[in-house]
């Protein structure tokens, strides 16, 4: 039992660290920074499950983020139902959207850049639809009426809301860690590495990919709902905008593709640096985006395993060296 809990230690450690933040931080700027960053990191965890573990690079995770946010908003404003079930409905709708997109794309055998383009197309179509449809409030977007209260998932102080975000972040981290050790996780990684070889070993590639994109959509949609509850406002360009599609894959790649902690580490590093540069340079519009671009280039060129990979190599230089020599058994 003790050994089966060991893989969860890093998740627990990060969880404790994050849980302390709302208690220790008092400045609204810091709380705001952490809340937004963790929401992005949650969306990035969804992306990482499909893209990092499964090797299916989506360029349109905004589709799930937006579906989550809009589903919950419609649930609350058009049907007058409550925000907590809205959170569940948003998550479920994200899963359904994932399954539909996945079914269409994966059944047709789309891979690599073709899959990326199809996901981008879905996100863009959703954006245009949300921008013009009446039920989504059209171009004006949707403004949740202010009804502060835990029952409405609206909190008067940021720390409480941050606590909720931290709890969900850690929950999903635990889930991903569990998947990583499961049969499903092994099969998902196998098909990333070599789809034919996985099929030959009895992996039902379509079923595994569908499971992955369903879960991925659900997680990213949860982040979308949290975004809605935090800002109480969404419009098509926020919920279905390219910004979130790009940020989630940046966070996962910079943090470490296919690692459990990567998306969280990556999102914190990216947003942290972005804020630092903004503070240093002053109000130069778009400077944080330029920084993201530079970080991506550096990460792709010099950090094959992302920041988590770098930390791992630093922590265990010996093991790596031991594995270095060729294991020929002539």
């Amino acid at each position: 039992m003790r050994s089966s809990l060991r893989p969860y230690l890093p998740v627990l450690a990060l969880g404790v660290l994050l849980a302390l933040a709302p208690l220790l931080l008092t400045s609204n700027v810091a709380l705001n920074f952490l809340a937004v960053t963790l929401i992005v990191s949650l969306a990035a965890q969804g992306w990482n499950l499909l893209g990092g573990f499964g090797g299916q690079f989506s360029f349109g995770h905004a589709a799930f983020f937006g579906v989550g946010a809009y589903s919950s908003a419609i649930w609350q404003m058009r049907f007058g139902l409550d925000a907590w079930t809205g959170l569940l409905v948003g998550t479920a709708m994200g899963a359904v959207t994932g399954l539909v997109i996945g079914f269409l794309a994966f059944r047709a055998g789309l891979r690599g850049s073709y899959f990326a383009l199809v996901t981008l197309a879905f996100a863009e179509v959703f954006r245009v639809l949300a921008n013009s449809s009446e039920v989504t409030g059209g171009a004006a977007g949707m403004l949740l009426p202010l009804k502060i209260g835990a029952g409405n998932l609206q909190f008067s102080d940021r720390a409480t809301f941050l606590g909720l975000v931290v709890a969900l972040t850690v929950l999903v981290l635990g889930l991903v860690q569990w998947i990583r050790g499961s049969r499903f996780g092994a099969q998902l990684v196998a098909l990333r590495e070599n789809e034919e070889a996985a099929r030959a070993l009895g992996v039902d590639v379509l079923a595994v990919k569908l499971k992955a994109i369903g879960l991925s959509g659900a997680i990213t949609a949860t982040a979308g709902v949290l975004y809605l509850q935090y800002f109480l406002f969404i419009d098509a360009n926020i919920a279905f905008g390219t910004w979130i599609s790009v940020e989630v894959l940046l966070a996962a790649i910079v943090g470490g593709l296919g690692t459990v902690l990567g998306p969280v580490v990556g999102a914190l590093a990216l947003h942290g640096l972005g804020e630092l540069v903004k503070a240093a340079v002053g109000q130069l519009p778009g400077i944080d985006l330029a920084v993201y671009g530079a970080i991506l280039v550096v990460a792709v060129a010099f950090l094959p395993g992302g920041l988590v990979g770098l930390a791992r190599r630093r922590a265990a230089p010996r093991q790596v060296r031991k594995a270095e020599p060729e294991g020929g058994r002539a």
Binding site: R183, A186, Q187, A190, E193, N194, A197, A200, L201, G202
Partner: peptide, 27 residues
């Protein structure tokens, strides 16, 4: 496969475990 298809990013044990998972649900 004639042209071997290892799961290059995984360890030997992880490679073989993918096959073993076909008949064994638990890690």
């Amino acid at each position: 496969f004639q042209i071997v298809k290892p799961f290059a990013g995984l360890t030997v044990a992880e490679n073989v475990a993918v096959g073993a998972f076909l008949r064994h649900r638990h890690r």
